[in-house]
Lab assay of single mutants.
Amino acid sequence: DIIVVALYDYEAIHHEDLSFQKGDQMVVLEESGEWWKARSLATRKEGYIPSNYVARVD
C-alpha cells in the first residue's frame, strides 16, 4: 500500500473530496493526475485528495 501523510489541512470542497488535517495518514487507492482517491487511516472515510497536499511515507 502507498501511505501518505498530510502536509497541510484540507477542507473538502465537493462531496466526493476527503477532508484531512496536517499529519493525518491516508492509504492511496488510486493515483490519477492531481487528485488521488484515498482512505483515511483514522476515520476509514474515502474520497479524493489534492496530491500536492501530501507526501509519501517511506
Results as ranks from 00 to 15, higher is better:
residue 31 E to Q: 05
residue 54 V to K: 01
residue 17 D to T: 05
residue 53 Y to W: 10
residue 44 R to D: 15
residue 45 K to A: 13
residue 5 V to C: 11
residue 16 E to V: 10
residue 8 Y to W: 13
residue 38 A to T: 07
residue 43 T to N: 10
residue 22 K to Q: 11
residue 47 G to E: 00
residue 25 Q to T: 13
residue 20 F to I: 04
residue 42 A to L: 11
residue 52 N to G: 10
residue 45 K to R: 10
residue 46 E to M: 09
residue 11 E to S: 15
residue 9 D to C: 03
residue 15 H to P: 15
residue 17 D to R: 13
residue 28 V to K: 04
residue 3 I to V: 07
residue 22 K to E: 11
residue 58 D to A: 04
residue 39 R to V: 06
residue 55 A to T: 12
residue 47 G to V: 00
residue 5 V to S: 11
residue 1 D to Q: 15
residue 57 V to W: 06
residue 24 D to S: 06
residue 33 G to D: 13
residue 55 A to F: 12
residue 5 V to E: 05
residue 50 P to A: 04
residue 7 L to H: 15
residue 23 G to C: 03
residue 2 I to S: 06
residue 39 R to F: 05
residue 46 E to P: 02
residue 25 Q to K: 10
residue 51 S to W: 09
residue 39 R to K: 15
residue 23 G to I: 00
residue 7 L to G: 03
residue 23 G to F: 03
residue 21 Q to T: 13
residue 14 H to R: 14
residue 7 L to W: 02
residue 19 S to Y: 04
residue 43 T to K: 04
residue 1 D to W: 01
residue 12 A to C: 07
residue 53 Y to C: 09
residue 28 V to Y: 03
residue 26 M to A: 00
residue 47 G to R: 00
residue 8 Y to I: 10
residue 15 H to F: 06
residue 44 R to T: 14
residue 8 Y to N: 15
residue 21 Q to C: 04
residue 55 A to H: 12
residue 47 G to M: 00
residue 12 A to I: 02
residue 5 V to H: 05
residue 42 A to H: 10
residue 19 S to G: 12
residue 11 E to W: 06
residue 7 L to K: 11
residue 21 Q to N: 09
residue 4 V to D: 00
residue 15 H to A: 10
residue 35 W to G: 06
residue 37 K to A: 06
residue 58 D to H: 07
residue 32 S to Q: 15
residue 3 I to L: 08
residue 26 M to C: 02
residue 50 P to M: 09
residue 37 K to C: 15
residue 41 L to P: 14
residue 24 D to Y: 03
residue 55 A to G: 10
residue 47 G to F: 01
residue 48 Y to R: 15
residue 19 S to F: 05
residue 55 A to W: 07
residue 37 K to H: 15
residue 9 D to E: 10
residue 40 S to M: 14
residue 55 A to C: 05
residue 31 E to H: 02
residue 16 E to C: 06
residue 6 A to L: 00
residue 2 I to W: 05
residue 50 P to V: 00
residue 46 E to I: 05
residue 39 R to Q: 13
residue 16 E to T: 10
residue 41 L to E: 11
residue 9 D to Y: 02
residue 55 A to S: 10
residue 35 W to E: 09
residue 42 A to Y: 09
residue 49 I to W: 00
residue 33 G to S: 09
residue 12 A to G: 12
residue 5 V to G: 04
residue 6 A to K: 01
residue 9 D to H: 01
residue 33 G to T: 08
residue 35 W to M: 14
residue 17 D to P: 01
residue 4 V to S: 02
residue 6 A to V: 00
residue 35 W to S: 13
residue 49 I to K: 01
residue 43 T to I: 05
residue 10 Y to H: 06
residue 57 V to L: 13
residue 31 E to W: 06
residue 50 P to D: 12
residue 10 Y to W: 07
residue 22 K to C: 03
residue 45 K to D: 10
residue 45 K to H: 15
residue 22 K to G: 04
residue 37 K to Y: 04
residue 50 P to G: 03
residue 19 S to Q: 04
residue 7 L to R: 09
residue 53 Y to I: 07
residue 33 G to P: 09
residue 15 H to T: 15
residue 10 Y to M: 04
residue 56 R to L: 08
residue 46 E to Q: 12
residue 9 D to G: 07
residue 51 S to E: 09
residue 51 S to H: 11
residue 11 E to R: 13
residue 6 A to T: 02
residue 23 G to H: 03
residue 22 K to N: 08
residue 40 S to K: 08
residue 2 I to V: 02
residue 38 A to M: 02
residue 56 R to K: 09
residue 29 L to G: 05
residue 3 I to H: 02
residue 51 S to N: 09
residue 37 K to E: 05
residue 2 I to M: 10
residue 12 A to Q: 04
residue 51 S to G: 10
residue 23 G to Y: 03
residue 37 K to L: 13
residue 10 Y to D: 03
residue 57 V to S: 08
residue 32 S to M: 15
residue 39 R to C: 05
residue 4 V to Q: 02
residue 17 D to L: 10
residue 25 Q to G: 04
residue 43 T to L: 06
residue 5 V to M: 11
residue 45 K to Y: 08
residue 31 E to Y: 03
residue 57 V to P: 07
residue 52 N to F: 04
residue 14 H to K: 11
residue 56 R to N: 14
residue 22 K to F: 01
residue 51 S to R: 13
residue 29 L to E: 04
residue 23 G to A: 06
residue 4 V to I: 07
residue 14 H to E: 11
residue 5 V to D: 03
residue 53 Y to S: 11
residue 25 Q to C: 03
residue 52 N to E: 12
residue 37 K to Q: 15
residue 6 A to S: 05
residue 21 Q to Y: 15
residue 46 E to L: 09
residue 15 H to Q: 12
residue 40 S to R: 09
residue 43 T to R: 06
residue 2 I to A: 03
